[in-house]
Design a protein around this nucleic acid. Structure first.
Lengths: 126, 126
DNA sequence: ATCTATACACACCTTGAGGTAACTGACGTG
DNA sequence: CACGTCAGTTACCTCAAGGTGTGTATAGAT
């Protein structure tokens, strides 16, 4: 109905959309959510347990991406066996809070998404 | 830090995440945005022009998905040559408004996403 | 000497999203 | 009769995400 992005440059618009796409993809959102719910730094293997269905390879890949995006911090403790801990950055926490608002809105409106099944629209006439 | 989803069932949580993933994917967000910015129903070919880079096949596919999700309405006028118009549903508009809030927050904080590049973190000691 | 635990890296394969190009159907027009 | 228009559909191909399975370094425990 109106252009909610009118105050953005095309480049800002594109970058924001790219960030949304990346953060809202299959695994990143789950990982951020798990880290937030834990409330403390988590080791690699703890993440593997809690992010159900993810493979080792993809978990490392996704964690590296999240680190590059500044959403999590990776801390390596040079012990044996090695210990690595992941935690949200303030930016990651803030972003997750924003996404959570959207998340909650959707959950509150799941009925509306269901309701559409009952409303069958037929073709209009010219 | 805390579980922002504590009031959700696992199923609600999963469905909401799935909706976020689907809506935030490559094309759906752009299409919804274009429809919103237009402020009026758009024909297939108008969408093709405004959603830069999308192919005919993927545009139809994505539009069908958005229709099934109840976010847009497809209206076929049985003329020759055929005319088909797409417009946001109230639900689609509301969802886009919610996403727009997130969008705007990200644009306002793009500097923070940039800043991370300057903050190099080295390994900690145990 | 062997085994275990941890956090990966690497090679290989499958799957699906998305791109390209050609074809269709119905009708008005020249 | 051939042509153009519009909104697709269909067949075909590519590429990257993601899954699987194995290898690796290190030191302590048995």
């Amino acid at each position: 109905m109106f252009d909610f992005c009118s105050s953005m440059t095309d480049e800002q618009d594109a970058r924001a959309r790219e960030l949304i796409e990346r953060a809202a993809a299959k695994w990143p959102l789950r990982i951020l959510h798990v880290l937030s719910a834990a409330g403390a730094p988590l080791r690699f293997s703890r993440l593997m347990e809690r992010v159900e269905g993810i493979s080792q390879k993809v978990l490392t890949q996704t964690l590296r991406t999240l680190e590059r995006d500044g959403l999590i911090i990776r801390t390596l403790y040079p012990e044996v066996p090695p210990r690595v801990e992941y935690e949200l950055t303030p930016l990651g926490r803030d972003l997750l809070m924003q996404v959570a608002a959207l998340w909650r809105w959707i959950v509150e409106h799941l009925d509306d998404f269901d309701a559409r099944k009952a409303v069958k629209l037929t073709a209009a006439r010219a």
